[in-house]
Design a binder for these strands. Structure first.
Lengths: 210, 210
DNA sequence: CTTTTTGAACTGACTGGTCAGTGCAAAAAC
DNA sequence: GTTTTTGCACTGACCAGTCAGTTCAAAAAG
């Protein structure tokens, strides 16, 4: 027992199998939901025997929980990186927010199924992975809240804003716009979508200009 | 015999039973998801026998579909009413948007379980009620899009805004902020939440003021 | 009025099928 | 030779949907 011996993300055989299972599970669960997706389906889609699923994960729920952790970890890292990059480039907090919106869009564009599944589970109660979800949600939202709070401190944002609520609203804006984009207008470019959201963020909607 | 003698030709008893089943189903499905919720549970929560569920609805899926139609109908009517009331009062399109945000919050405050369940299903594919969901979604979003479009026409909004995307983003803003409010800060008042979202809508976030 | 009939609404035990999870021997990979 | 995967038979719980039978209030008959 050892897989942690590989220094940097290099996959052992076991790690590769787990990755295949994540990918199979994420699309199936996004489409059908957790309960409607069978372990047999996941194994088949991953090209693996059912026994292998249970060799690698204690249960279906555990597979799902680790999938959640895995995915939100990627998102959080991406958001954090976007915020830090603008800071390094000397940008303000508005720029940081804008960069995080873009990072969010890129993430959703790359992992639409994961996003879908995450949204579907986020406000549920009475489910086994409830606590996992809370922890992981907080990690992601905290990045947005941090930028807002810093913006208030340095005077860039009004100190009357409600940090947690504004963070939720911003996340919702990006989330729903992106999912609708994927579902109903997939031909549009990311830049296009990003531009529309930037306009909204900066209150450039209710200015007459045409 | 002939209970249908009642004025509208609709049996009250039957309607009352259906209502009880909607109420039972909506909370259970919001908590657990459609597949994880059993018909036995729904019947028990509603205080009726399992057979009654099947006497009133062709199947579990049909019950769910009618529940969706029922709920989104309420929301759509509420949004439309909010928009029309501001128009009657001589308000502009920004006021209409603001009133619709409030109407959305009121709806979510009153029917949190329905909202939750709706969000969880909205972007799924390969489900039996997919087409029903598309239709009702469009009804609701169309109200927001209509106000935006009118605002562009009368010059109140920039004609550079992307109407469908902006509508999605606004819906997402309200949806996620409200669900997070319900889940994580239920003690806060609706006015409070409304004020925070108004501020965001009107771009009064990045104005230093404190 | 009283008795009988009607049928919509409801009941709950039952059925047939599904699925998470197990067990294990043999093969493959490393 | 150790770890991982395979294939597959098996089990026991669970569950959607069915159906023969019950209830009861209102209508019809007497």
């Amino acid at each position: 027992m050892e897989s942690s011996s590989a220094t940097a993300g290099v996959s052992t055989r076991r790690e590769a199998t787990r990755q295949k299972l994540y990918e199979a599970a994420v699309t199936l669960i996004a489409e059908q939901g957790f309960s409607a997706t069978t372990v047999d389906e996941i194994a088949e889609r991953a090209g693996v025997a059912k026994g292998t699923v249970y060799y690698n994960f204690a249960s279906k729920s555990v597979l799902f929980e680790e999938l959640l952790r895995h995915g939100v970890g990627l998102l959080t890292a991406s958001l954090r990186e976007a915020a830090e990059a603008t800071a390094r480039a000397g940008g303000g907090k508005v720029d940081a927010l804008d960069a995080m919106i873009r990072a969010g869009l890129v993430f959703i564009d790359r992992y639409p199924a994961f996003t879908q599944l995450y949204v579907a589970e986020l406000w549920r109660t009475n489910r086994a992975w409830q606590s996992t979800l809370m922890v992981v949600r907080q990690q992601a939202v905290a990045v947005v809240e941090g930028v807002l709070r810093e913006g208030v401190e340095n005077g860039e944002f009004s100190d009357e804003i409600d940090v947690p609520l504004t963070a939720s609203a911003l996340v919702g804006m990006v989330l729903v716009a992106a999912l609708d984009w994927q579902s109903f207008q997939p031909e549009r470019s990311l830049d296009d979508v990003h531009a529309a959201l930037s306009r909204l963020l900066q209150g450039r909607v209710s200015g007459r200009r045409g």
